[in-house]
């Protein structure tokens, strides 16, 4: 069976000023699967991730060449509304970054800026998102507490709930567990496992065990180039290239 391609890039180059950070990257993301992007620091995987929801637009003097498509539509099109793109392609950052507001306010923010004012509907969405992010039981009695009083792991799941509240189709995760302890990390990984039944997940990670645990497909980046992409099992057990093998067996990087 041919997988449904939710998002893809074709011959994507990316420049910071004159420095070329990405070279000719063509990669498909299958619908309702988790794809892990691995590679050593500075290999361009985070930059690549940010091309997918046009977060790089905000950095001055950057340039994108090539194609990025979501649902077969080009997203680097002047007619496309970046705001609506980012509502479809949510993002979770490396460091948990809840707003210094209440837990409720944090999750309700996305729907609110979409124009939803109905309090009952908002409450419903907040509850649903917090449940989806597997944090509802821990916070349901203190929704009006400041989000910064939560632990790091809870904050990160709150940020995931915040991203989920706008019903994204794709969720980008930039090393979402690298600032967390092993138990909190495990919770995030379980969450990813659960979430991918409903949405497409693209996760950048330094941790190869994590990539092998949570992802269905893995792409290995090195020096701004896509070296190899395959089913996670295949890539980790039987890599096609020596370079990939060296990296996943810890011989470099």
């Amino acid at each position: 069976m041919k997988p449904n391609i939710k998002m893809c890039t074709k011959n994507l180059d990316f420049y910071y000023n004159k420095f070329q950070a990405l070279y000719n990257i063509s990669l498909d993301f299958h619908e309702c699967k988790a794809t892990a992007l691995i590679g050593p620091s500075g290999c361009g995987k985070s930059t690549y991730l940010k091309c997918l929801n046009r977060m790089n637009d905000l950095i001055p003097k950057t340039k994108v060449i090539g194609e990025v498509k979501l649902n077969n539509e080009i997203i680097y099109d002047s007619s496309l509304d970046v705001v609506s793109l980012r509502r479809k392609v949510g993002m979770v950052f490396q460091k948990p970054n809840p707003f210094p507001k209440t837990i409720f306010e944090n999750v309700a923010y996305g729907p609110k800026i979409n124009g939803l004012k109905n309090k009952a509907k908002l409450t419903e969405i907040v509850e649903k998102s917090l449940k989806q992010a597997a944090i509802w039981d821990e916070v349901k009695d203190r929704l009006n507490q400041n989000a910064l009083e939560l632990s790091g792991g809870q904050q990160q799941r709150l940020c995931i709930a915040r991203a989920l509240a706008v019903n994204p189709e794709v969720l980008l995760m930039d090393e979402p567990a690298s600032a967390l302890d092993p138990i909190a990390t495990q919770k995030i990984e379980e969450l990813i496992e659960k979430l991918k039944s409903k949405l497409t997940i693209i996760i950048v990670t330094h941790n190869m065990q994590q990539a092998s645990r949570v992802s269905d497909r893995t792409a290995f980046f090195y020096m701004g180039k896509l070296i190899e992409v395959n089913d996670t099992d295949t890539l980790f057990t039987n890599p096609a290239l020596k370079q990939t093998e060296d990296y996943i067996t810890g011989r470099f990087g």
Binding site: M55, R87, M91, N97, P98, G110, I113, C159, R162, V166
Partner: peptide
């Protein structure tokens, strides 16, 4: 951080 969060939410 906060600014990124708003951007990422559209």
């Amino acid at each position: 951080n906060y600014l990124n969060a708003v951007d990422a939410l559209g």
